[in-house]
Simulated assay, not measured.
Amino acid sequence: MTAGTVQRWASALDGVVVYAQGALCTRLARGGVPADGRVRVTGLPRSLDPGSLRARVTGASGVRVTEARIEVEAEPVGAEAPDALRREVERLRDAYEAVLGRRDRQAGLIEETAALRPVPPARKRDDPHRRTAVDAWLELADFVDERLTGLHARLVELEEELAEAERALSAAADRLARASTDAPASHVATTVSAALTLDGATGTEVEVEVEYGVPGAVWVPAYRLTVRQGDSRGRLVLRASVAQRTGEDWTGVRLALATADLRRRTDLPRLRSLRIGRRQPAPAPSGWREPPAGLSDLFTGYDTAGPRPARAGGPAKAAVGGHAVGAAQPPTPPPPPPMY
C-alpha cells in the first residue's frame, strides 16, 4: 500500500496545558479502523517535539494503538501565493510613493505661497516720490492667508492618506516576510502528521487522542489585590498572560496552566526499607578472622619433598630444590605472656 492510499483523519485541537516553558497539546481525530490498521492524523504543527508524541484510543472500543511516529510529507506547490503577495507589496509601494510625491508638492506650494511679499517697482532718480499702495498690500496679504488656509487643509488630508498607505504597505511587507520565511525557497509545502497503527475490530469507528509537546509557549502570572478603605477584607485576583508562537490557533481551546517545567526530568524517589518487629541489640564484634587466601599452599613443596635419608652420625636430610633440608623438628613453644 502506498503512502497515498493510507487513510487520513483530520484532527482538531481540543486542549492545551501551558507550562513554565513549553506546552502540551491534545488533538482529537475520529474515523473507522481500516483493514490494515494504518491511519495518518493530520494537522500537527511543524514545531512539535517528535519524542513527545503519545496516542491512545478513547472509550472502551477494544481498539488500541500499537505504534505511533511522526511523518513529514513534502510536495511541490505553485508560487502563486508568494508572487501575489509580492505584486501586492509593489502596488502598495507605488501608491505610497505617489501619495508621498503629492504631499511633497503640497508642502512646496505652501512654501511658495508663504514667500509672497509685496515688491514696489524700482524708482528712478528723476521720478517724483510716490505713495505706498496700502490697499494692494492688504489685498495680497488676504490672498496669501486664504491660499495658505486651503493649502494646509489639503496637506492634512495628504498626511492622513500617506499614513494609511504606509500602514498598508507595512502590513503587506510583513505578510510577505512571514510567507518567505515560513515556506522553503524551492516552493515545497511540508505537512506533519502522526502515523498510527491500530489493532482491533476493522470498521469500528473510534476516536483517537494525540498528545505532543511544543516549545514555543510561555505564560506569566499577574496578581491584583483590591482592598477598600476601612474594610478588613480584600479580593485577590490571579491573571495569566499567555504567549505562544507554535503555528497553531488556540482560539476556543480549553486552556490549563502549570508552574512546572515541561522539559525537566523527574525520577521516582528511592524509598528506604523499613523493618517492623521487636528491636534486638546489635551483635558484639567477633575477634575471629578468615584465614588469608593461599595459606594452604604455603607448605605444599615441603610436604611433597618427603623425609630425607638417614646418615650415620647425623640426622636424615633430604634435598629439595637443590637445598638440603633437615628433618622436621618439633615446633618451639611460644614464650609465656608477660606478667603485669
Rank of each mutant, 00 (worst) to 15 (best):
A23S: 13
A23F: 09
A23K: 07
A23L: 12
L24I: 09
C25L: 15
T26Y: 10
R27G: 00
L28P: 10
A29T: 01
A29C: 03
A29V: 02
R30H: 03
A35K: 13
D36N: 13
D36W: 12
D36Q: 15
D36P: 08
R38E: 09
R38M: 15
R38H: 12
V39E: 00
T42A: 15
T42V: 10
L44H: 02
L44A: 05
L44Q: 02
R46F: 09
S47E: 12
S47C: 06
S47Q: 06
L48P: 00
L48M: 10
D49I: 01
D49P: 03
P50A: 05
G51Y: 06
S52H: 08
S52I: 06
S52C: 05
S52G: 05
S52L: 00
S52W: 02
S52Q: 01
L53P: 00
R54C: 03
R54Q: 11
A55W: 00
R56Q: 15
R56W: 08
T58K: 08
T58S: 11
G59C: 06
G59L: 11
A60M: 04
S61M: 03
S61I: 05
S61L: 14
G62P: 03
G62S: 12
G62W: 07
G62M: 14
V63D: 00
V63H: 02
R64K: 07
T66P: 08
A68M: 06
R69L: 08
R69M: 13
I70T: 10
E71L: 13
E71V: 15
V72I: 14
V72N: 07
A74H: 15
P76E: 10
G78R: 12
G78N: 03
A79W: 08
A79M: 05
